[in-house]
Design a protein around this nucleic acid. Structure first.
Lengths: 133, 133
DNA sequence: TGTCAGGTTGACGTTTACGTCAAGGGGTGT
DNA sequence: ACACCCCTTGACGTAAACGTCAACCTGACA
């Protein structure tokens, strides 16, 4: 049952980021791995947090926003006021995600028309080449 | 049929960004409005580009990426090699958008579980309050 | 004829998210 | 004993995306 642990370079390799980045996330309060002496020892939970960070970054979240998400995931901090503000933040995030979905759908449509124009332009150049031969 | 035009502050107001930002986008080659003397005169097309930029930013695109998108929208540049590389870029973007969709779906799930935990914690505190009375 | 709102070009400052050394500690194989 | 290898903490550098002046022009209006 000995829960798995990782070194910093283990995670760096596996998640394809630099150790510097990982330490930076810790500096910014997004991680707080155990220590064995000086060395950082990462738990599976830390790894989950890191994945959450990377996912957040892919959709344009700042590290501060990622930190909030991680904190939302935290089972500690339990007074009623905080819980309500958490719920508020969660629904804010949800709205943001909805907006991003819409943005992405729109982008896809634009890629469709851009692609169509490309294809038509290609067909055009093919035709004019045929007419030369 | 006199196509509408906008001043820089018109667009800034309407799109809720600063004039500085708009000028910066021009510096970076994302816009190239007409000029009347010194003054910038923006066309509806420029406005579309600006909206595309803002949409791009909302989903975490860099300005360089936004510029590529705008260039994809451009009907000029028509040699075959370029057209093929355009098509390649388009499909790259599409893959990226797909990934972002997945990321967002995943985020939503995580918000769901975070919300659930919040609600349960709230119910818990309510129960303990009842048991006191 | 002032002055005022809105436009312009620098040019430097700032925040975010790391990259890139430098200098050193600690275990381990030879 | 020494050579690696991986780890650590500074500390400074950097790219992106603007913010924030400063200094200046310009047409309109009292």
């Amino acid at each position: 049952m000995s829960s798995q642990t990782y070194s910093i370079s283990d995670l760096a390799r596996e998640l394809d980021i630099t150790t510097r980045a990982i330490r930076f996330y810790e500096e910014q309060g997004l991680l707080s791995p155990e220590r064995r002496g000086q060395e950082r020892i990462y738990s599976p939970r830390d790894k989950v947090s890191l994945k959450l960070i990377l996912r957040g970054k892919r959709i344009g979240f700042s590290l501060a926003e990622c930190r909030e998400l991680i904190e939302l995931y935290d089972p500690s901090s339990g007074n009623t006021k905080q819980l309500h503000s958490m719920l508020a933040k969660i629904s804010e995030r949800r709205e943001q995600l909805e907006q991003q979905m819409l943005d992405i759908e729109q982008m896809k449509l634009e890629l469709d028309t851009a692609e169509e124009r490309c294809v038509q332009a290609l067909e055009q150049t093919l035709k004019s080449q045929e007419s030369v031969q």
